[in-house]
Simulated assay, not measured.
Amino acid sequence: MTGPVIGAADRRVLCLVPAHDEEATIGLTVKSLSRVWAISEIVVVADGCTDRTAAEASAAGARVLAGQQRLGKGRALDAAIDRVERPHTFVLVDADTGEPRARLNVGKSASSLAAGFNSVWVTKAKTRTVFRYNARSHRRVAGGSVEIARPGQNIAVVTGARAVWVGVRNDDPDDRSAETVVRIDPSARTQQPIQVAGGVQDLAVGEGAVWVSNRFGSTVTRIRVSDGRQDVVRVGAGPKGIAVGEGAVWVASSGADEITRINPRSLEKKSIALGAIPERVTVGGGSIWVTAKEAGRLIRIDARTRKVLERIDTGPRPYALDVTRGRAVWLTILDANGLQRVRFHRPR
């Protein structure tokens, strides 16, 4: 189940370009990518091509992995990843990209980002501005950035429920007064500050509410989008990551070695013992995925039965994670300064 850890000593950036019958554009794409100084190697994955895609890619300077039978983009990429030497970073580019327009340069100290409303929204801990970039042109939207009126550090941003939501933490880490979630209307750029007595650790949006894991206590705050009403739910000690999916809210409780499932309507909750300290949580592929940083494990829970399916050894200190296309989990390995991929099948 586990993939190899990509070590800190290998800083190669490998660009994968999946292609099926793209002879008209693949040469231009490869040549334009070759001018990107950070890319160490370009590999074109020719998926059952019937034209000159492989020849054009090779002539432009790419390494070509060709398959006679068409597998489809996802399976072809999975097969290619298993055949190449592991780099420090993978970059995925479509074969018909041609000449890249621009790099999305957001500067230093970005603390969080979220996609929504045809834009990418970026927060930085050292400024109160939420920056807005056009998702197509990669340029900052003129007049689109928002200066948060509430003092503090912008530590999280999410989109959903027709708004952008920003978590603002007090400047002084020992200040335990109420912290703030700010609702931004992306069209009018108006702000609505919402005080959260329990503080802000992480945010998630879904099931008609904004969910806040609280920094000051063993609680989660539900902020109803319709009327702003707040309800506080007690969970395990030390809530950290929070996610919404599979009809529930999932909270990693680092002080209780458990994950809490909250019914988003009744607020009834069930605890699932993990036997390890959880850090971050995400939902995908019919499962709940939890990183246990100190135990060096990725824990998989069946979303339907709520039973632990697997405890996967990952290497030292796994942290952030995400699920891609419901078929693989990617996670960061802090002590290896790298990434790891874990493939999976949906639970039956």
Rank of each mutant, 00 (worst) to 15 (best):
V244Y: 15
V13K: 06
V157K: 02
F344I: 04
V5Q: 14
D47L: 07
P278S: 05
G160L: 04
G167T: 01
E147T: 11
V43G: 02
K269C: 04
G107S: 05
D171P: 02
V212A: 06
V281K: 09
R306M: 13
G3T: 09
A188R: 15
A248K: 11
V232L: 13
S266Y: 14
V168Y: 08
V157L: 05
G206C: 11
L16M: 08
R12S: 11
V196L: 07
V30Q: 03
G144E: 03
S32F: 14
Q195P: 03
A149S: 13
G7H: 10
P239F: 12
S137C: 03
V323C: 10
R297V: 09
W37E: 10
R35K: 15
L92I: 10
D172L: 00
R304V: 12
P264V: 05
E258M: 10
R304M: 08
R101L: 15
G160P: 06
E56V: 10
A303G: 12
R297D: 10
R63W: 03
V45L: 05
D185T: 05
P4C: 02
S119A: 15
A188D: 09
S226P: 04
K108L: 09
P316I: 00
L339A: 06
S287L: 08
R297W: 11
I155K: 12
S40Y: 02
H345Q: 13
G206E: 06
K124Y: 02
G326Y: 13
R12F: 06
G199F: 15
V13P: 05
R75Y: 08
I155W: 02
T180Y: 15
G206I: 02
A197R: 14
D174Y: 14
G238E: 08
G255I: 06
V166Q: 00
D10Y: 08
V93D: 04
E310R: 14
R63Y: 06
N263G: 09
G315A: 05
K293I: 00
V166Y: 11
L65P: 04
T332A: 15
T25F: 11
R86W: 09
L71E: 04
S40A: 11
R215I: 00
V64E: 02
L298D: 02
T324C: 02
I288M: 09
V205R: 00
R234Y: 13
G206M: 07
L28H: 10
G206F: 14
T291Y: 10
P316V: 00
R183A: 11
I39T: 06
T332P: 02
L267P: 03
G217C: 04
A110P: 15
V141G: 04
I26N: 02
T29R: 08
I262W: 10
Q153D: 03
R280H: 15
M1K: 12
I42P: 04
S177R: 14
A19Q: 00
V181N: 02
T29N: 03
V130S: 07
R63K: 06
T314R: 05
K108E: 10
E23S: 13
R280I: 01
D202C: 03
I155P: 07
D174S: 09
D185H: 11
N134Y: 10
A320L: 01
P239C: 10
A110Y: 06
S218V: 00
L274E: 05
A273G: 13
